[in-house]
């Protein structure tokens, strides 16, 4: 049995939880065999929403603010870049009926010890 746990945060608390704490918890889950996949996301401004209507792909800046639409599943994709990811997202079958929010995954920022940080 797999469970997808979606983390929701408001803007005020977006950066409240230190990444190192998250990394420790992931380590704990890995050690206990509970971890399948998990990543933090860049803020919603980096999102693109994809819909397919009448065979045409429509792209929207940001998350699709349709409160009627509830989360129905998720795909973790490995794509070359955003255009590649959007092409793959447009192929996800429910894109014809609802919308797919494409959010880039970021890496935990653990300072000097591990690579990757913002310039």
């Amino acid at each position: 049995m797999k469970y997808l746990c979606l983390v929701y945060l408001d803007r005020e608390n977006w950066s409240s939880c230190p990444d190192a704490v998250c990394a420790d918890y992931v380590q704990h889950l890995v050690e206990n065999g509970n971890f399948v996949a998990g990543d933090p996301l860049h803020p919603v401004e980096s999102a693109t929403t994809v819909r397919v209507r009448n065979g045409k792909t429509q792209l929207y800046d940001g998350p699709f603010a349709e409160t009627k639409e509830l989360l129905a599943g998720y795909y973790m994709l490995d794509a070359r870049d955003l255009n590649d990811a959007l092409r793959l997202a447009a192929g996800i079958p429910p894109a014809k009926y609802g919308s797919i929010e494409v959010r880039p995954v970021r890496q935990l920022d653990l300072g000097d010890t591990i690579s990757d940080s913002q310039s």
Binding site: H42, E45, S46, A47, T48, R80, D81, L82, N83, D84, V102, P104, R106
Partner: peptide, 12 residues
Amino acid sequence: RAKSKIRDACIP
């Protein structure tokens, strides 16, 4: 913000 999005979302 636009530049951040281009970088973060990896717009080619």
